[in-house]
Amino acid sequence: MNAPQSKLLHANPSCDKRIIACVVFSLIACIGYVACDLYKLPLFTYYPAVNEFVLGFAKLTESQGPAMYWYGWLCTTTILGTIVGACASLIKVSLSVSKFLAHTTWLAVWALLPVLFNSLNYYWTHA
């Protein structure tokens, strides 16, 4: 490798693809999870009292008992995060962008905390 090429590589170094894939997965999954909660997007609904599954979002019924969406949100989010993370690993990302992305993972949790807190308003106002 001649000197100018080496200089160019040093000026714009790229990041390990494994780090990019994992960081993007985490970021998208965290945001996706909250979006699934807010917009009612579970992959399936589970009725624990009767041990039944229904595809997508299903309302609470008297015969089946309480409905659980949490398992469905986890599945929706995992699929979404995996697809976006895999796609992100194909893109060459500079070190500065990947550093920014790595910071957004932990920042996302603290930023989403008030949103999650507000989504549980039912419990705070009921007391």
Binding site: V23, F25, D37, T105, W124
Partner: peptide, 26 residues
């Protein structure tokens, strides 16, 4: 109600924690 709300928040947070694990590991 408050205890339930705090518990539901815990469920949300541990889920976010689970999703953070790949980034943490990498």
């Amino acid at each position: 109600w408050i205890t339930q709300g705090l518990f539901e928040l815990k469920e949300h947070l541990v889920s976010l924690g689970l999703f953070l694990l790949p980034a943490y590991y990498a």
